[in-house]
Amino acid sequence: MSEWVRVCAAEEIDEEDLIRFDHGGCSFAVYNTEKGFFATDGYCSHEAQHLEDGLVMGTVIECPLHQGRFEITTGKALSAPVCVDLQTYPIKLEDGDIFIRL
């Protein structure tokens, strides 16, 4: 059974940036991109590195450890060394707050 969980106020995530969001023993990355807000798994699919210190370029997130890249809107792995996609999660905005469906 999925549920909408509040992440933070939208203004807390800078443009072209992300924050880490932990919930229920899982970790997520929530992004503010030029195309809107998105959410993916928090950990890179290559090794045990959280994406929170990564670099957002347009709708691409680059992992801070080995610079693997993912398309934020789809979670697709774009360039080596990553080759496994990230899971994405629905996001909605309500009264200035961001919610993630888990």
Binding site: Y43, A48, H50, D53, L65
Partner: peptide, 18 residues
């Protein structure tokens, strides 16, 4: 896999404005 195990700024105690 979870948990930060890599050798980098975090494991070296370095802080720098994001």
């Amino acid at each position: 896999m979870t948990g930060n195990i890599a050798t980098n700024a975090a494991s070296s105690g370095i802080v720098f404005d994001r």
